[in-house]
Write a protein that binds this DNA or RNA. Structure first.
Lengths: 125, 125
DNA sequence: AAAATTGTATGATAATATGCATACAATCTC
DNA sequence: GAGATTGTATGCATATTATCATACAATTTT
């Protein structure tokens, strides 16, 4: 199942954020082959984003062979599940980026890791 | 030392890619506080990118408190920020922001916390 | 068959990103 | 002091991104 999509105001285009989050969910196995994606209009409404923007994201996913779209039916995870990419490097990249923010905020990595552990113990906000 | 900066044609704005890569290098410790960043013109030339674009990336890094720019001298990694006033609240705020980024990247908080502990030089519990 | 749902498409508009050229200001080097 | 280096700034042109509005086409539901 696809976790909640979220948008950030960090300069990355909205359609890229959507594409990458959905691609990550598929690669992670949260969305199995054949599973139905949320309706473009659903995504557009819940995220307060234009339908064209969602369409662009879905089209990019289809371009990458991750998703197939059928008019009148919906959009689905493509059948041959693409091999899950190695995530360790991606995680390390994120960790480094986060570490920079922590340093800028004067927070040690241990303190941040501890706070994250507490956050992960609760339900997703 | 800053590893080679690379640009990808994945829809992410160039200045965002530069900002994130340099921020990651700082957080990773590859660029220590006080270390000099490559000249804006150096980056612009070697990556075949406009000077304005590099400037935008550097300005964003300064905005985030990661870099300080001095006219005529160059740009340098900022000294770590002094401890915040209400420390626990500050940490929680940062953790929440970071949690959003992790979700956007398809990385669980546990994975991120683990990577952060690794970065800080400690073994996992 | 009719209505609702869902993907597909278009045109207009505003904001943003990038490149190109040029110039100024502060600092360093000689 | 003169020249080179480096950050800072501007104006213009073009492409990309996002929104709004509207409409059509294929499929499902009633």
């Amino acid at each position: 199942m696809l976790g909640a999509l979220t948008l950030q105001d960090n300069g990355v285009p909205i359609y890229v954020q959507l594409r990458d989050q959905i691609a990550a969910a598929i690669g992670r196995g949260d969305l199995a082959p054949g599973a139905r994606l949320p309706t473009m209009r659903e995504v557009a409404v819940t995220l307060a984003v234009d339908l064209n923007t969602v369409q662009r994201a879905y089209a990019a996913l289809e371009e990458d062979g991750l998703v197939t779209m059928v008019q009148g039916r919906g959009s689905f995870v493509a059948d041959p599940a693409p091999p899950a990419r190695s995530r360790s490097a991606e995680i390390r990249t994120l960790a480094a980026k986060v570490a920079a923010q922590a340093q800028a905020a004067g927070v040690s990595l241990d303190e941040l890791a501890e706070a994250l552990r507490h956050l992960s113990g609760r339900a997703a906000p």
